[in-house]
Design a protein around this nucleic acid. Sequence first.
DNA 1: TGAGATTTGGGTAATTCGGGGC
DNA 2: CTTGTCCGAATTACCCAAATCT
Lengths: 72, 72
Amino acid sequence: MSPIRVVNPDGTFIIGPETTERLLTPGEVARLFGVDPKTVNRWALTGRIPSVRTPSGQRRYRETDIAPLLTT
Amino acid sequence: MSPIRVVNPDGTFIIGPETTERLLTPGEVARLFGVDPKTVNRWALTGRIPSVRTPSGQRRYRETDIAPLLTT
DNA sequence: TGAGATTTGGGTAATTCGGGGC
DNA sequence: CTTGTCCGAATTACCCAAATCT
């Protein structure tokens, strides 16, 4: 399998060959916090948590955005 | 109308006389969005994202088509 | 020629979406 | 103000086997 390499127009990497960021589903994040998945989506809507949208509109959450919130 | 492209076995394809660009496999795109590889192919079938076909029928995806969709 | 990983397609169960109201 | 729930519609995940790629 080839490495992931998504580049910007200026040639810089969005995701480099050595980086594979893990994305979490709303349900996975909900279980981490002990809340309903819809609550997680509301956090995204209100700007509390950044999210990535699939082409169809579903949300995925970066592990690096979620992990710091669990420690506090 | 997208241009006709001839895909090499290593996933690269010819842009110009001296330029070549690598394409992303379904598995790579799937990891970028945190979904199943089959879901990525479904996006191509429903026209949500453009795709390139190898002579054997497998799908490949252009980085420049995928990268803009990863916005937060 | 062979082994292991990946891709593809079909079918079905589970998840997610948004709106609305409590 | 935040959260959990109900609803229908849309989207996705997991099962399998066969084909393709490394």
